[in-house]
Design a protein around this nucleic acid. Structure first.
Length: 519
RNA sequence: GCUUCCUUAGCUCAGCCGGUUAGAGCAUCUGACUGUUAAUCAGAGGGUCCCUGGUUCGAGCCCAGGAGGGAGCGCCA
C-alpha cells in the first residue's frame, strides 16, 4: 500500500529530526549535575518543525473527550505524553495521557505501517501527536482506542535518564522531582481536584452574594499577630543604611518603612466587609515560622470570608455550609480522580467525604470540651486544664474518637486568642470558633470581631498591640461600627482533606517550607 | 525549635554476630512472542553502601561529627 508507505516515511522523517534534537537535550541534561540542582542552565531550543498538513488540519481532541465519545469511526488527533508502549513485532500499543483526565487512551499501531525502528522514540515520557481512527476496542480493558495512521514524536524522553518509571514511586522521592510529578497519576489527580476546589470556592461565594476582594500581599503593619513574617526590602543585605542610633534606617527603604509579606488579609478584609457587606479573600499567605509538620507551609493559600452584621452562630453556619458545599462539589465533579485516590491511598476516603458532606458538625464550647476531655478514659500526654490551649491529641480525641465527625469549638479563654475577637459577657472568653476535621486538625479558625471601640482598644493595650499602627483599622469601630464575623480557611488543608493525602507538601505544586524553596 | 527513625543500583528495598568478589524485584538494554493492559518469558549491563574522621588484622554493619529526608510535637490555617 502506497498510503502505508507514505505514512511510514512521514514518521521516519520526523523521527530522525526529533531524535537529533532529543540527543542534544539528553547530553545537556547529563552534563547538568543533579547534585547541585543546576536547573538554571538554559538549553538551546529545538528549531521549529512544522507538522504535516494532514495533522495540522485536524483539531486536537483531549483524551477525556475521546474516551467519552459515542461518535466512532472518525479521524481524530490526540496529543499527550506516553505512559507505556508494549507489544510485539506485529502490533504495538501506545498508552497516552494528556492531563485532561486520569485515564489514558490506547493507540494501536500495526507493524505493516510502523516498523519497530520508527517507534523507537515513542517511549515512556515522550510527547507525541497521534492521528488515527477512533474505533471500538478489539481488546478488553477499554471501550475505545485509536487505530493509528500517524505517530509523531514531538519530544523524546531518554529512557535511561527519565526519572518517572512505569511503577510506583514514593511520595518522598517525587518531592525531589516536583517539576515532573504532575505527570504522575497521583499528582494529576491532586492538581485537578485542587483546581476544582478553587473554582468551587469562587462559585460558592458568587452564588451567595459575596465580593472577591484583593487584599495586599505586601503589608506595612507588623501588628497582625498571626506569626513570624518575611521581610520585604530593597535595602542592601550587607550594608543597609543606618540611623544615628545604629539601627537600620527603613525610611530609606522602598516604601519608606519596614514592610513584610502578609500573614493574613483579615484586617483589610474587615474594612471591605464594613462597606460591601459580604466579602472574601483568596490569596497567598506567608508565615516565616520554623514549622516542620505535615500540616504547615511557609507559603500557602488562604480563604477569608468576612460578613458585616454576622454573629458567631451565623459565622458557624457559613463555615459549615461552605465546607460541605466544597466537598459535595468535589464528589460531583472529581469522581474519577477521587476513585483513584480512594483505591490507591485511602480506602475510607469516599466514605469520609460523604459523611462530612451529609452530617451536621458537632458544635460545643471550649469549656464543654474540657469537661469531656477530663472525664475521658484515654490517657493524654498533656494534661487538660481550663485556660490552656488544647493539644493536637485532645482535638483528635474529640473529632476522631468521641464525636466521630467534624467539631466546631467556640468561646475559648480570651488569653489564648487574638486581640480582635469579641469578648463574651462573662469577660473570660471570646467568640472564637475553630473547625476541627478528622486527620487534619484545625481547618478553619475564625471569630466574631470586637466591634466596640473601647473594649477593642483595651484588649490591644492588654496584649501590647500598638494601637497607633492600626488607627485605620480602628476607624471602622469609630465610624458606623457594627457586629461582624469571619474566618480563615487554609486552602491546602482543605485539599489535603478532600484528596486524602497525608502531607500538605503533596497538595501544592511547589511547596515552600523551612530549608526548601526548590523549583 | 524539640523528640525519634532513616540514608545501600535509576526506583523500592534485603544484607545474619564486624569476615572472601555487596544481593533481589522493578526500570534500562538485547532477544523471543500475532491484541497487550504496570504485558509476559530469557539474557546482559548497572554500586563514592550520604559525607568526614575514628576503632579494628578487617567496617555497608561499631563510635563521633556533619548533611539530607520521614514521622511525632510546638507555632497555626
Amino acid at each position: 500500500m502506497s498510503a502505508a508507505n507514505n505514512v511510514g516515511r512521514t514518521v521516519q522523517r520526523f523521527h530522525s529530526l526529533r531524535s537529533s534534537q532529543a540527543k542534544a537535550y539528553g547530553t545537556s541534561a547529563k552534563a547538568c549535575d543533579s547534585s547541585t540542582k543546576a536547573y538554571g542552565t538554559f538549553l538551546p531550543l529545538p528549531s521549529y518543525t512544522p507538522l504535516p498538513p494532514q495533522v495540522m488540519s485536524l483539531k486536537r481532541s483531549t483524551v477525556k473527550e475521546l474516551l467519552a465519545s459515542q461518535d466512532l469511526d472518525r479521524e481524530v488527533l490526540v496529543k499527550g505524553w506516553v505512559r507505556s508502549r508494549r507489544g510485539n513485532k506485529y502490533v504495538q500499543f501506545i498508552i497516552v495521557n494528556d492531563g485532561s483526565t486520569i485515564h489514558t487512551i490506547q493507540a494501536v499501531a500495526a507493524a505493516e505501517n510502523f516498523p519497530e525502528e520508527t517507534l523507537k522514540d515513542v517511549g515512556n515520557g515522550a510527547a507525541v501527536a497521534i492521528r488515527g481512527t477512533l474505533v471500538a476496542s478489539q481488546g478488553k480493558g477499554q471501550a475505545v482506542e485509536i487505530q493509528a495512521t500517524e505517530v509523531i514524536v514531538l519530544g523524546a524522553a531518554d529512557a535511561e535518564a527519565y526519572p518517572l518509571q512505569k511503577k510506583a514511586t514514593s511520595l518522598e522521592h517525587l518531592r525531589d522531582i516536583a517539576h515532573l510529578r504532575p505527570r504522575t497519576n497521583t499528582f494529576g489527580a491532586v492538581l485537578r481536584i485542587r483546581h476544582a476546589l478553587a473554582f468551587a470556592v469562587h462559585q460558592y461565594f458568587n452564588d451567595h452574594g459575596f465580593y472577591y476582594v484583593h487584599t495586599p500581599i505586601i503589608t506595612g503593619s507588623d501588628a497582625e499577630g498571626a506569626g513570624q513574617m518575611f521581610r520585604v526590602t530593597t535595602l542592601s543585605a550587607d550594608k543597609p543604611p543606618l540611623a544615628e542610633d545604629g539601627s537600620v534606617d527603613y525610611t530609606q527603604d522602598f516604601f519608606g518603612k519596614q514592610t513584610n509579606l502578609t500573614v493574613s488579609g483579615q484586617l483589610e478584609g474587615e474594612l471591605a466587609a464594613m462597606a460591601l457587606g459580604s466579602i472574601y479573600t483568596f490569596g497567598p499567605t506567608f508565615r516565616a515560622e520554623n514549622s516542620n509538620t505535615a500540616r504547615h507551609l511557609a507559603e500557602f493559600w488562604m480563604i477569608e470570608p468576612e460578613v458585616a452584621f454576622n454573629e458567631l452562630e451565623e459565622n458557624m453556619d457559613l463555615a459549615e455550609d461552605f465546607l460541605q458545599s466544597l466537598v459535595k462539589y468535589a464528589l460531583a465533579n472529581c469522581a474519577d480522580d477521587l476513585a483513584f485516590l480512594n483505591e490507591q491511598y485511602d480506602k475510607e476516603l469516599l466514605a469520609r467525604l460523604h459523611s462530612v458532606a451529609d452530617n451536621a458538625f458537632q458544635r460545643l464550647t471550649y469549656t464543654e470540651a474540657v469537661e469531656i476531655l477530663k472525664s475521658a478514659k484515654q490517657k493524654f500526654e498533656f494534661p487538660v486544664d481550663w485556660g490552656t490551649d488544647l493539644q493536637s491529641e485532645h482535638e483528635r480525641y474529640l473529632v476522631e474518637k468521641h464525636f466521630k465527625k467534624p467539631v466546631i469549638l467556640t468561646n475559648y479563654p480570651k488569653e489564648i486568642k487574638a486581640f480582635y475577637m469579641k469578648l463574651d459577657d462573662d469577660g473570660r472568653t471570646v467568640r472564637a470558633m475553630d473547625v476541627l476535621f478528622p486527620g487534619i486538625g484545625e481547618i478553619i479558625g475564625g471569630s466574631q470581631r470586637e466591634e466596640d471601640y473601647t473594649k477593642l482598644t483595651t484588649r490591644m493595650a492588654e496584649m501590647n498591640v500598638p494601637a497607633h499602627d492600626l488607627d485605620w483599622y480602628l476607624d471602622t469601630r469609630r465610624f458606623g461600627t457594627a457586629p461582624h464575623a469571619g474566618f480563615g480557611l487554609g486552602f491546602e488543608r482543605l485539599v489535603l482533606f478532600v484528596t486524602g493525602m497525608s502531607n500538605i507538601r503533596d497538595v501544592i505544586p511547589f511547596p515552600r517550607y523551612p530549608k526548601n524553596a526548590a523549583f
